[in-house]
Computed example of a mutant assay.
Amino acid sequence: MHLFKKGKCFLPLSLSALVLAACGDDSGAAGDESNESNGENGEIELTYVAWESEVASNNVIGLVLEEAGYDVNLNQVEQAVMWQSVAQGDADGHVAGWLPSDMATDYERYGDEVVDLGPNLEGNRTGLAVPDYMDVTSIEDIHSDNFDEIVGIDAGAGVVDSTEQAIETYDNIDIPLQTSSDAAMTAELGQAIEDEEPVVVTAWEPHWKFNTYDIRFLEDPEGIYEEEEEIRTVVREGLEEDEPEAYQILDNFYWEADDMNEVMLDISENEMEPEEAAQNWIDNNRDMVDEWLDIEETDEDSDSE
């Protein structure tokens, strides 16, 4: 499985002939062929955004698809490109559709050009969060007397767009929104908590930071952020006909927030590589994975017998 991740290249054991575009390197890298899928069912490209949650989900479903006989490429891109690449057929799908609100703009633009397979995780949410040691409880409490800035993630991310809307809606917010990345945001959050300094961040759950740190969402009286969201699986038109088994596996893919958190915590706290953490979760949840792999026989399978 090939994995691109911004700022760092994770080179899994099954890697072969990867163009290291995300690292600014045009050279290839060979992996251990003994661990590589035979690709008997063809190739599948999944695209995703550089959020810890999506690193976890893509590595898990990528390994499951490899187990089914596919060569899998995971390609990290910006949020809008993630949707556009599936709509244009340049990628086969993504499992990172935060809806109905967080990626509403992308869904409105590309929803008619993709196939929405429904949620692979439910009950997630977004908002602004602070450490428990702070005495603020609501977004209405955010102002320059207690914060210097709101620490955000990637410009264009749904939670950032919602935060920009919150700044316009709440008259009390007189501090800037600083965009960065998921990794930079969590690093700044961790440092602030270590020093017990004031900090407010764009947040979403599931995310390992809610397990690692004592933090909480701020109340949102204006209802800018959705409290109940889904993460949906979205694939390109024609995938069901071209790769029916992969389509069925992606359609079957469904897990809980605790499952995603297990993978994220192994990466963040136990310092596992993403693929190792994903494989560890798969090994410990064999029954669920077997349900994803339980697919109906395709016409192509019947013809080959």
Rank of each mutant, 00 (worst) to 15 (best):
S268H: 09
I139E: 12
D251C: 05
Q76D: 14
S302E: 15
A187N: 09
A184M: 10
E291L: 09
P12H: 05
T212R: 13
G156I: 10
E36R: 11
D283K: 06
D148T: 03
W292Y: 14
D145T: 13
E149F: 13
P100S: 12
N285K: 06
T186E: 15
H2N: 07
I267K: 01
H94R: 11
E240S: 12
I44L: 11
M134F: 08
E305K: 01
G127D: 01
V159E: 01
L74V: 12
D102I: 09
E40V: 11
T169L: 07
N120P: 03
E222K: 09
S268D: 01
A29D: 10
Q88E: 11
P198D: 06
E66R: 07
A87I: 08
T233E: 03
L117N: 04
P100E: 08
D102P: 05
N73F: 12
I249W: 07
L218M: 02
P119Y: 03
Y247W: 03
D182P: 02
V235M: 00
S53G: 11
G24Y: 09
K209P: 05
E43N: 15
P274D: 13
D258L: 01
Q248D: 07
D266C: 00
L121G: 11
I61S: 06
E222C: 07
I282D: 03
D266P: 09
E296H: 08
T212P: 06
I215D: 04
A96Q: 06
S27M: 13
D290S: 14
G97V: 09
E222Q: 05
E113L: 10
D102W: 02
K8L: 12
T212K: 05
E168A: 10
E230G: 08
E230K: 04
D90H: 08
E243Y: 15
S27R: 15
M260P: 13
A278P: 01
V200M: 01
Y48A: 00
N124A: 07
L65K: 15
Y110T: 01
I153F: 00
A183F: 06
T47E: 01
L293N: 04
V49D: 14
F4G: 14
N252T: 08
G31T: 05
E168W: 08
N261H: 09
V235A: 00
I282Q: 06
V60H: 11
G7S: 05
A157I: 03
D258I: 01
F147Q: 08
E113D: 08
E276F: 12
M134L: 15
G31I: 02
V114H: 00
D242C: 10
N38G: 14
A187P: 04
V115I: 05
E54Q: 14
E40H: 13
L250Q: 04
N58C: 10
E45M: 15
H94I: 02
D242G: 11
T137V: 13
W292L: 02
T202E: 00
E237R: 07
E276W: 10
F4Y: 13
A166P: 02
E269A: 14
Q84A: 12
E273V: 14
E196V: 00
T212V: 15
E227L: 06
V19R: 13
E297H: 11
D112G: 14
N211D: 13
E256G: 05
N58L: 02
V263N: 04
A166R: 00
S85Y: 04
N120H: 05
E229I: 09
M260G: 14
E241N: 15
P131Q: 01
E305R: 03
E243R: 11
D258P: 05
T179P: 07
